[in-house]
Each structure stands twice: as C-alpha cells, then as structure tokens.
Design a protein around this nucleic acid. Sequence first.
DNA 1: TCATTTACTTTGTTTTTCAAAGTTCTTTGG
DNA 2: CCAAAGAACTTTGAAAAACAAAGTAAATGA
Lengths: 100, 100
Amino acid sequence: MSVDFSLYNKVFENRIRLQIMSVLMANEGYDFSSLKDLLDVTDGNLASNLKTLEKEGYITVEKSFVDRKPNTRYKRTDKGAKAFENHLSALENLIKQQYK
Amino acid sequence: MSVDFSLYNKVFENRIRLQIMSVLMANEGYDFSSLKDLLDVTDGNLASNLKTLEKEGYITVEKSFVDRKPNTRYKRTDKGAKAFENHLSALENLIKQQYK
DNA sequence: TCATTTACTTTGTTTTTCAAAGTTCTTTGG
DNA sequence: CCAAAGAACTTTGAAAAACAAAGTAAATGA
C-alpha cells in the first residue's frame, strides 16, 4: 500500500549534497573547483555541504598541488556509497509505486 | 556527463510533502487523519505541509462530514501531478546515471 | 614583495521545519 | 440546552538548516 521509506536518508534531502554524491558515484574522484562549476553554487555553500558529507563519513578529502595550484579532491567512501544507494532505493520505490 | 536537474522541484525536497504527493498519485483522494497515521507526523506539521502544497496549487481540499465527524479530503491537481512526475524524472535520471 | 588564486572559515541573516498550545466547528452525552 | 469531545486546523515560537558575503591562509607569479 504505502512506500517503504526506511532507507530514506535526510543527509541527501539537500539538492547540493545529492548531486555531489551522484557525481562521486559516477567518478572515482572530483575536485573542488570542478564541483563548483558543475553545481553552480558559491564556494562557501559548496564547502559547507562537503563538510557535512565528510562529517557523516560519506566522503574523503585529499589536498595536494596540481600545476602549482592547490587542489582538493573528494572521493566517496564505502559507507557513503552504501548510504547513497540505500537512499536511491527509497526513491526508486517511490517511482515504481506510481505504476502500481 | 552530468545529470539534468532542471525538472527538480524544491517543494518536494521535504520528505513529508514528497510522501503526501506519492500517496495522492496512487490514490484518487486521501483524508487528513489517514495521512496522519500513514506518515507519523503531528497534525500541525501535516497541516502546514498540506498548506504548502495547496498554495502551490498542487492539491485541492474538500471538507465534509463523514459518520457525523469532520473529514478533510485531499486530491492532487493536474498541475501537481505534472510537477511531481517531473520531479521523479529528475530523480530517475539520477538513479539511471549510476549504471552509466 | 605584493597581488592573485584556491579553498576554505566565519559571521550573520533568511528560510524552513516542527512541536506545542490554542481555536473553531460540530456532534454527542447528560 | 450545556459541557465535553474529536477533527482539523492556526498561531506562536524555537531550533535547525541553508546560504551569501566577507574574511583568511598558503602558495605562486610578476
């Protein structure tokens, strides 16, 4: 009757965090400035949403220098991948339900 | 490369509103107390989220008496159905992208 | 050495969420 | 007929979340 929402994850309720994880699922890693271009957000906003994901243990951060410029690279963790897949399952249930 | 998010709708970023619309897509109508039981929210919270959907023109409200008790019944509008389907499309793109 | 770029952090405002309490309308029991 | 009760709110206010803007650090380039 009703859709199972137990796998729904509030961390991914935010559009920016949802998109960040989506990008990090499709790519092994992605850097700060590329994310910024892709998602069209201010750097402060992006940084704080990345921090939220990091605090949850969903992504890792690696700082280095590329072309003599600072470069910060983000990657999903296994925990993050699992959590995201679970969340997508909840959404998938919602979508499927429509045809029931 | 990146997922199309143009159909993403901020109104449905909230879990409760997302679930309400989901229920109203699968059912012609649904009443207040049944929604309350289903979604496990306080009546104030439910009422305010229903009002948000009503203000957007996504649902309609009909009040009557059933078994001598007040009964409020909610239905999706065409506009609401369209907006919700669009939003699900955006989510579907996100899910599909994972297998690319 | 001074400006510039990247990737933040801090600050503070605005927006959103939500619970709790109060209100209205109608029915029912005494 | 009056009080109590239940449904469905509305109001109030507090807490959390979202963001923009400005400030900062570290390294490089001119």
